[in-house]
Amino acid sequence: MIIEFRLNHEKRTIDIDPSARMLDVLRDDFGLTSVKEGCGEGECGACVILVDGRAMNSCILPAGAVCGKSVVTLEGFKHTKRYRAIENGFLKAGSVQCGFCTPGFVMATESLLNENPHPTDEEIKDGLSGNLCRCTGYNMIIQGVRLAIKEGEGLW
């Protein structure tokens, strides 16, 4: 099946099995390895990407579903001011340990703030509840999001 979509703001056309997992298409066909496989069943969020600005689990997203949509991975997002605010927040708060979950958390944070620029702590926790982290116990990630909101005031 021919699939046309935008990937990190560039128009792309691929001929591919529409049932292929978007995770594999991004990693294998486009070399976008910030997208990680942690569970393969939508439970851990390490593969979260943005589709039309919203977080989705690419491991359970069939390639055929992105026709005509805009897909953004961390590779495409990391050149933005919003990213910079998130990066600084995560750096300063100590949000990162092993790092395998981190790209997913960055993308989930963007999706959350895009929809709700001033979330409460409970809303941050809910917004990140699809992303598992086994190292930090989450509090320092939540703190990272708070710092990002502060630094990025007005960007979302």
Partner: peptide, 21 residues
Amino acid sequence: TSILRVDSRKKIRGEAEYIAD
């Protein structure tokens, strides 16, 4: 006194290469 972790930025940017990469 806390300092910034030396490996954080690469990991946040998604540039750290795990074996699957």
